[in-house]
Design a protein around this nucleic acid. Structure first.
Lengths: 193, 193
DNA sequence: CGCGACGTTGATTTGCCTCAACGATTGTGG
DNA sequence: CCACAATCGTTGAGGCAAATCAACGTCGCG
């Protein structure tokens, strides 16, 4: 098992001490996943924080009509977790699925809590991570309530150029909150100028 | 100046020690605001975390057409801040305005950082606060991309019953991402069954 | 090779917006 | 304390953005 990408991720904020590093390594488990495999599904409790070493996943919800709506994508150096279920211990209402074969490093809830207890630095790391994710979500809400699908698509291309090549557009449409048919029209309009 | 509501807020998570409490009290400044006064505006850097003792504020963005879009409301025991500007030191693109006369307790950036440095507990508090805000925003994104204005309105009534009585519906419409005219129709439809 | 996932196109419908007008309420200055 | 202005909620006619439904071509993969 190679934990280096995760260690490098934390070191990029503030370097880990030897003791922090040791405790982290002890807490981590590996998971290799195939394409279209579920990391979490509706009804399950989310027991882990998952760090994406390679591959790509999507978090999505399903509405009353059975339609899927992508909440976010996670690729290399990002995290997957349903925080709400993780802390409450209640069943999740979300799904997390691989869009590509993926390599994850998992930290179980008890170990997350132990790391927080023994090393204040981990609290800081995750504070920063979720503050950033909060800002991202806030910007997204603003976009959703203030702009058209075309504007949202253009913003997506600008913000996540690596993802836009990598993901099928049916999933981008779902993320943007429009139908694949409509996104197709938007793309045609854009390419025409 | 009465800091008790803020101390009570933190104590509700985990009790403060005497030393934490003292340092907190030293960091806090008071601000009383009239209705429609700005706590933050577009172009300004956000220098404070603001704790709402009483009153109600809204955070909003303005689009290219000059229209306002409410991102969130903050009432008693909630926080107002533009995290992005606060940390980056760059001008904000958001506005934060009182909807009622309000009483705030402010902590300046340097003091926030000092509190984090000397007392790990404050890092934990704000980690929890922003994790919760992240989950809230995530739910809101899911709602925005998956349901109609009517469903969003009903969900708002259920989630924030105290706010729905307190706020003019023009602001609720802006929060939901629809026009006041349309919200008016939605309300009529609902009252008819 | 054949199947399933994906992208595209077109016709029709619907949710929501725009603009305009009108009472009702609120707040404020004289 | 009243008068006026500003804000707020509602209604209706017309228009646009985006959904729905259905059909079809392409590609990658088992």
């Amino acid at each position: 098992m190679n934990v280096d990408p995760l260690i490098a991720f934390f070191n990029a904020y503030v370097p880990l001490t030897v003791s922090e590093k040791d405790d982290l390594i002890r807490s981590v488990k590996e998971r290799k996943m195939k394409r279209k495999e579920l990391f979490l599904q509706d009804g399950q409790v989310c027991h882990h924080h998952g760090f994406v070493v390679s591959g790509c996943l999507r978090t999505y919800g399903v509405d009353d009509a059975g339609k899927e709506h992508n909440l976010q994508f996670a690729a290399e150096n990002d995290w997957v977790v349903d925080l709400s279920s993780f802390y409450s211990g209640k069943p999740s209402r979300l799904f997390i699925e691989t869009l590509e074969p993926a390599h994850l490093l998992l930290i179980e809830k008890n170990d997350v809590i132990e790391l927080y207890k023994h090393h204040a630095k981990f609290v800081r790391y995750f504070k920063v991570i979720f503050e950033n994710k909060f800002v991202e979500m806030q910007n997204r809400v603003l976009q959703n309530i203030s702009s058209t699908a075309e504007q949202r698509y253009l913003a997506f291309l600008e913000q996540y150029p690596h993802l836009s090549n990598r993901l099928p557009s049916v999933h981008i449409a779902s993320y943007l909150g429009c139908t694949p048919e409509f996104l197709s029209k938007v793309r045609k309009d854009i390419s025409r100028g």
